[in-house]
């Protein structure tokens, strides 16, 4: 079943949802949000696209397959914990660094964000993996 309305909506909603998911991911450490909810939104963006255009076309439009995306996510989560070990601290200890300090673009980055990014990819990958295989049936 092809619906023009759904297709147009999906095409325009997808980039917006992806950006929104990134915003939710970034604000997660101190405010409501985070990798899990952001990942769900990222997954939802592509599922909406798949509802409009079919699974095959959607999968072609994603640079990596959902399985690989999950793998990347797990790898990032693993790395975020190991960075602390390399710095001589206990596994998963938060390590922080400040970029552009002193300027108005001051940016505090740390391993919790990296971990959240891992969760973000893992959740999105798993969600797409499950939904795509159900939708293909």
């Amino acid at each position: 079943m092809e619906s023009v309305i759904l297709q147009i909506a999906a095409r325009h909603m997808r980039p917006l949802l992806v950006i929104l998911s990134l915003v939710v991911l970034y604000r997660g450490h101190n405010e409501p949000g985070g990798g899990f909810i952001g990942g769900l939104m990222l997954g939802a963006a592509y599922i909406l696209f798949a509802m409009g255009f079919g699974v095959q076309k959607t999968q072609k439009s994603i640079p990596v397959s959902p399985v690989i995306l999950t793998g990347i996510g797990l790898l990032l989560a693993l790395a975020s914990g190991l960075i602390a070990v390399l710095m001589g601290h206990v596994f998963m200890t938060g390590e922080w660094t400040t970029l552009f300090s002193g300027t108005s673009f001051e940016l505090k980055l740390g391993t919790p964000l990296l971990f959240d990014l891992g969760v973000y990819f893992t959740v999105a990958g798993m969600l797409m993996l499950v939904m795509f295989s159900i939708m293909e049936e």
Binding site: G71, L74, L78
Partner: peptide
């Protein structure tokens, strides 16, 4: 002590990337 969790996670990641 964290190895019993970390090792399977690491193995899982390797296996995901080499699934072909």
């Amino acid at each position: 002590l964290v190895l019993p969790i970390l090792l399977p996670l690491f193995f899982m990641v390797v296996l995901i990337f080499t699934r072909r």
